[in-house]
Amino acid sequence: MEILDPRVRFDEDGTSATFDLDTPLTGLNVGLRLDRSWRSYFVVIDEWKQRLTADGAQVHVLYTGERVGDEGERTRSDLDEWSRLVDCAVVGLGN
């Protein structure tokens, strides 16, 4: 029998996209965004910040909070402001 396909066909696979800067880090504004609930990443952030700074980058760390309600509004405002500061960023460090 013929049935209809219930799936959306996605063009690319489900893994996170990765990017190459193709440029030295010197003078670049690099953002690191972390959900502050995920404290294990604090250690990671500290290490990356040191290394990025050593390579000449200007590092901007953003610790985000809740995503709904009044706190969510503040989080979105912080993200908006932070996104204007950076040339590139590492995000998704959290849950």
Binding site: M1, E2, L4
Partner: peptide, 10 residues
């Protein structure tokens, strides 16, 4: 209906 069709087992 624009969904793709699947030839399914009977």
């Amino acid at each position: 209906l624009t969904s793709e069709r699947i030839d399914a087992a009977d």
